[in-house]
Amino acid sequence: MFRIEAEVDRDRRDLLRSRLRDTNTAASPVLAALRGTPAEREYPLHVWALDAAGDLAGGLVGHTWTTWLHVTYLWVDAAHRGTGLGARLLARAEHIATTGRGCTASRVETWDFQAPDFYRKQGYEVACVIPDYPPGITEYTLTKRLG
């Protein structure tokens, strides 16, 4: 007999993540080889652009894990779009990921109305397309080999 609950519980989330990581590590020789090494951990990677007044003009939030950079958010204020700032933020994150963290690839998810063409111009290739996620919108996963 089981009791099924649907509630936000950070402690259980962390326990579940730890147990899933252990299960995945046991099933994968690649992940097992990373066990206990610095590459096993996710490391935050943030890059910020501030304007002359010190206000946020743009930024990139992501993390590195194993040999991958994962770009979670990349945003540029409307007043600074079209200036190359987004490309500079992305290039800086890729540089940090490759030179300081040994990354050889990068990935990002974006929607059709956001920036798939921007990422293609930066050398990313479409790896996955999910139509109607959310309804009426297409999500793209793009990847790039770094270095």
Score class of each variant (00 low, 15 high):
residue 101 R to W: 14
residue 52 A to K: 14
residue 74 L to N: 10
residue 80 H to Q: 12
residue 70 H to R: 14
residue 90 L to C: 14
residue 65 W to C: 08
residue 49 A to S: 09
residue 55 D to K: 10
residue 76 V to Y: 06
residue 52 A to C: 12
residue 64 T to C: 04
residue 99 T to G: 03
residue 100 G to K: 13
residue 93 A to T: 03
residue 58 G to P: 01
residue 67 T to Q: 01
residue 54 G to P: 01
residue 84 G to I: 06
residue 99 T to N: 07
residue 101 R to G: 02
residue 81 R to T: 10
residue 102 G to N: 11
residue 62 G to A: 09
residue 101 R to Y: 10
residue 97 A to Y: 03
residue 62 G to V: 05
residue 81 R to A: 12
residue 97 A to G: 06
residue 57 A to P: 08
residue 73 Y to Q: 08
residue 88 R to P: 02
residue 62 G to R: 06
residue 66 T to F: 15
residue 88 R to W: 01
residue 66 T to Y: 11
residue 91 A to C: 07
residue 84 G to C: 09
residue 59 G to R: 15
residue 74 L to W: 06
residue 71 V to N: 12
residue 65 W to I: 15
residue 51 D to W: 04
residue 95 H to I: 03
residue 87 A to W: 00
residue 103 C to V: 01
residue 84 G to Y: 05
residue 74 L to D: 03
residue 86 G to Y: 00
residue 55 D to W: 13
residue 71 V to G: 07
residue 51 D to R: 04
residue 85 L to I: 14
residue 86 G to M: 00
residue 103 C to H: 02
residue 80 H to G: 05
residue 76 V to S: 07
residue 103 C to T: 00
residue 50 L to D: 04
residue 57 A to E: 14
residue 93 A to E: 13
residue 54 G to A: 00
residue 49 A to H: 11
residue 81 R to H: 11
residue 102 G to C: 08
residue 55 D to P: 05
residue 98 T to P: 03
residue 72 T to F: 06
residue 99 T to K: 02
residue 86 G to K: 01
residue 60 L to M: 05
residue 64 T to V: 09
residue 81 R to P: 05
residue 82 G to Q: 15
residue 69 L to N: 09
residue 52 A to Q: 08
residue 70 H to I: 11
residue 90 L to P: 10
residue 86 G to E: 02
residue 83 T to S: 15
